[in-house]
Amino acid sequence: MLEITYSVRAGDIEHGGTASAWLKVELRKEGVSEQLARRAGVIAFEGEMNLILYATRGGTLHVAVDDAYIEIELNDDGPGIEDLDLAMTPGYSTAPYWAANLGFGAGMGLINMERNSDRFEISSHLGEGTRIVCWIDRRKDDNST
């Protein structure tokens, strides 16, 4: 069992991705396969960067691991996503120009998260915030992502 919560600060581009890179190492220590640690790393990275770039006050990245699942949960308290279908469209991005020039804003963040999850849930309300939960099934560890 492993359970970690990271606080992610809004706008902290400089440290963006730190938690995810560290998470991957922690998961490997926990006996998670390279393949699954990599998938978890991708999910966490996209989630972490979303909190940094878009969440008004940042948010939390919570990871829980047991024998069956790796659960990655992201929470923030605003601004919320107006149109989830649109946000889940490949290439759709609201990243500002400066962020695009740092390599962000491909419009693939949520999609990369979903693709690397065995189960993916997202809920969002304007003015309240966004909650994303991703599960990776460790029992389906067949080395194919």
Partner: peptide
């Protein structure tokens, strides 16, 4: 050649 597909 790019993978950007935004209006920009």
């Amino acid at each position: 050649v790019t993978v950007q597909r935004h209006q920009n």
